[in-house]
Design a protein around this nucleic acid. Structure first.
Lengths: 193, 193, 193, 193
DNA sequence: GATGAATGAGATTTCATTCAT
DNA sequence: GATGAATGAAATCTCATTCAT
């Protein structure tokens, strides 16, 4: 295995990585190296020029998603204090960022959220992040104090994941629209006044 | 492949089916026939006495989940009119039934919800059912008329699925507790009064 | 992998083992599974019915040689006290047994002595055994007391190994003849009287 | 493949040859070209600038050992008549030269004696040389006339090979010490006087 | 003189499935 | 009803070697 040293090599590696992402996203870990290299216009050994094993590419893709996610989470923590008058807008914006992040690299998202055997870990990270934000806002008095924010965070994350799969990635709804709908539902509830 | 005629044959087939469910639930579609028959105390050809192929058992398990689900859905539609005074209790009860259904056969549930490649179809069915109920209640004036019940149903189903995976099946929360929490969150919303 | 349960299975396993021995003896560890199964009239997966891996058959063959050797060594230790009058005959007999042992299973011998990467260990065992015998006889006064029996044992073993390869296994000399020649040379030396 | 014309080219070729010897000595013919070129600070195609194939380097190394050996043998044949009074010293000296030769290029020695598939040929050459010397000395009346010198030569060569592997190359014994021990053992025999 | 990229050919191993009994 | 033995087809990975520069 070798780090590519030329433009051509970099291109081949990148092509393999992109195609691998797409194949893993489509078929799960059972995606075949032979399909990947064929789609990249290469032969099987070429794959092993750039990656030590099938597991290694997969792991590289998962890590890519994870580290992107970490960047998003970290930036979200740097977030300024909440503007009292509009929690609604505030949360909506965050949600929208989240959806945009998930829509930016659909294959990586699918791999990280749905095909990685350790996806529970990733979800746990997301739940922790969301919960942190919610608790702060709860302490500021915006949210009912009797809500179990762990539970709420888990619900919210599950909605995000699912809507990402069924609406965002297929292009049925925009990040903004989904964010608005979620916030409206969760903040205001369903009861008619 | 044959239909089992004797008691012994029926027992072997049933054993294979149960164990197959457990293995598919644990390892996904990659579960191995060799493991299944070994756990059933049989040999590989015995498997093919009762099932034409690996795909066929898998499909049979998925169909089992689906038809159970259909029965639940149908019974839910037969449901009497809503008691005006307590929508809350009413919905909570339905949710609890749903969770109880999902907890009754954990392996089938895992297969139907998480490992079946066509799980999107199953989810769509669930969404449709939930949506039907919600719309009726919305028309009766219990819920805000501006809510997109398709969207709400999808959120609700995603919450159910996720909580089933992370809390119900692992035994961390009871069906009743989860139902209560969900109804409280979705009906009342998060905003502090 | 499976223990064979029928005569046919036992025969197949035995055939594979014999042919594997022959192939490893001829080509070293690079012998190919495909050649072995072909010579056994089987297909590749059949091999894995009886052995978990290529390494495992090889190890089984090495262990077979080793345990045969251990039996020989142990029986040689049970040896009664030396008949004073004929050390010569005594040692010759032992050497002959040794050669007969090595000639009995030529392929195993070749594998144990020449192709096993850990053959140094086997030789060390043989040297230890031989040395033990020689030291006893030295202490009984049959051999010069100034000889380093570790050294002598190593020479003797090397002669045995080499003559096994060049004369015994090719059928150029008999065990008895080789034993006689060695004893004559080593005991009496080369100097003309 | 080209003959190197520049100093740099010669140096590269020599480096490859030395490292190849070391790798073949360590790992047998399974040594990898990729390891060799890496250790030489070169790339795989560079190897093929200087050698037509893996087999070719290996053969070149074997031939190097063989021709060195031939020089030794030829010089040994040019040897002056034996000094009557000290056959012992005479033979010891020759043996010591032989060991020194074998110790001079340990990697070549290991390749020639232990890894070359045709090592039997090399051994036959050595046996022939040794036998020639021994017969002359036998004819001069120094050795018992009833000894089969072909046999003795083979024993002697096997001892030399083995002691080279286990004592000389690991640095456990010096050439002089080994020569002395061998001559003492073979000339005087083991029998206590 | 040397390189980066790529390949042909093949080796081991796995697994669902079938044959013969 | 069930078994022991066996297979077809394929997947991952390795390595000596070549192409193009």
């Amino acid at each position: 295995m070798v780090k590519p040293n030329s433009e051509k090599g970099k291109a081949s590696r990148a092509r393999l990585l992109t195609i691998a992402a797409s194949e893993f996203a489509k078929r799960g870990y059972n995606a075949k190296i032979s399909d990947i290299v064929a789609a990249a216009g290469l032969t099987q050994p070429a794959f092993y020029l750039y990656f030590p094993s099938k597991e290694a590419v997969f792991e590289e893709l998962v890590q890519a998603f994870r580290s992107n996610l970490k960047i998003l989470i970290d930036s979200s923590l740097l977030d300024p204090g909440i503007e009292k008058e509009n929690v609604f807008e505030h949360i909506k914006t965050k949600l929208q960022m989240f959806f945009n992040f998930l829509a930016a690299e659909p294959d990586l998202t699918r791999i990280g959220l749905f095909v990685d055997p350790n996806r529970a870990q990733i979800r746990a990270d997301m739940v922790r992040m969301v919960r942190g934000n919610l608790v702060k806002e709860q302490q500021s008095g915006y949210f009912r104090s009797d809500l179990d924010m762990e539970f709420v965070a888990e619900c919210l994350v599950s909605m995000i994941e699912q809507l990402t799969e069924t609406r965002l990635l297929p292009g049925l709804s925009s990040a903004g629209h989904l964010a608005t709908q979620i916030v409206d539902l969760l903040l205001n509830g369903m009861i008619a006044e």
